[in-house]
Design a binder for these strands. Structure first.
Lengths: 196, 196
DNA sequence: TAACGATAGGGAACGTTGTTCCGTTTGGCA
DNA sequence: TGCCAAACGGAACAACGTTCCCTATCGTTA
């Protein structure tokens, strides 16, 4: 995408000062509104909070999904990078897998409604969906592979399928004392173990 | 609700002939549209298919969710009734639980988008949500209890939580060759087993 | 410093949803 | 046959994501 973060892209045209200011304002406003009302909050609310018109949002972020993506990109990135680190620092690959999945679950559960939007088959969320898949599935695959090679888990588990299942289990987990996604995800990971 | 099925309710006022005809027509049209476009199909599409105005739908079904419920009520009922039957006919309670969950998963997966709508926190779907919970959770609880008493599974699993988790895993499972909800649900149920 | 043109902004407007309103039609009964 | 409550159809409303178009502003250049 548009870097403007000092990246050595194709001579990034350098945006105007007010444009950059608004982009930052919008990201902050969106983050604040998402915390209060969830990621499904109306675009108008975010625009109002930022003190700009709705068109301004669309000039910076082609679609609602791109705004959501921009808000959470850093955290997704951090999660992706934590994978290899955990693999190196954990006692066993299976332990690393468990911890990494926990990281992912914690991330999803604390973002009201993000898990739901992530699995939505609405075409508007395709880019969001694709980013999560592209960034996290390979990491998960690496962890699964390591645990399988170590003989700790079955080797026929597809990383995409697992990520998708974990994401699904996180839907509706916020503010619901009767539903603990973490417990169910643990059960799922437990079901992966090979009988010793 | 409005019975009109010969129930001995509070002297059901007996609807007009065209009203009864339209109700049946609407149920058929809705079922057909749901198969083609999923349960999230616009109300207008259903009305058009039935050859009636949209208001006619709302006169028979207070909200979209009630229509969905009416279309699938028989199947949910059948699923609920299958619980005790399976418990009586299966070799072990755990086997009965597994088969019953499979029934539920098959039902959800074959109804495009029903699982998603079921977990939606949209207030409009509260009655639909409540019906599924009220009708199926007790059945699931009975199966869980029996399996726990038989020492086959851990005894700290809440039926609501399990149903919810299974429902979640079924989201987006239709038409996606990369995601097999049945496999993941099996993993989840496997994770429930007590080490022998 | 003043003026100009490309860049960016604001809010009304559009298309799509679920739901409601209201004037019209029609089934069942006297 | 004529009446009227019950039922109907479709326009109307509110909320959403997204787009359009006219105006305001930034940054440059004279």
């Amino acid at each position: 995408m548009n870097d403007s973060y000092g990246g050595a892209g194709h001579a990034a045209p350098r945006k105007r000062a007010d444009a950059r200011r608004n982009e930052r304002t919008l990201l902050d406003a969106a983050a604040a509104v998402f915390v209060i009302s969830g990621v499904e909050a109306p675009v108008r609310d975010i625009a109002a909070r930022a003190g700009v018109g709705v068109a301004t949002i669309y000039r910076h972020f082609p679609t609602r999904a791109d705004l959501i993506l921009a808000v959470y990109r850093h955290q997704v990135e951090a999660c992706a990078e934590a994978g290899p680190a955990l693999l190196a620092s954990s006692a066993t690959p299976h332990a690393a897998l468990g911890r990494w999945i926990n990281l992912f679950v914690d991330f999803l559960v604390t973002k009201h409604g993000l898990a739901a939007v992530l699995q939505s088959d609405d075409a508007g969320f395709d880019t969001l969906h694709a980013y999560f898949i592209d960034r996290l599935v390979p990491v998960c695959a690496q962890l699964l592979e390591a645990a399988a090679v170590a003989g700790e888990i079955r080797s026929d588990m597809d990383a995409y399928e697992l990520m998708r299942g974990v994401g699904n289990l996180c839907i509706g987990a916020d503010n619901n004392p009767r539903y603990d996604a973490r417990r169910l995800v643990e059960l799922l990971i437990a079901g992966l173990r090979l009988p010793r």
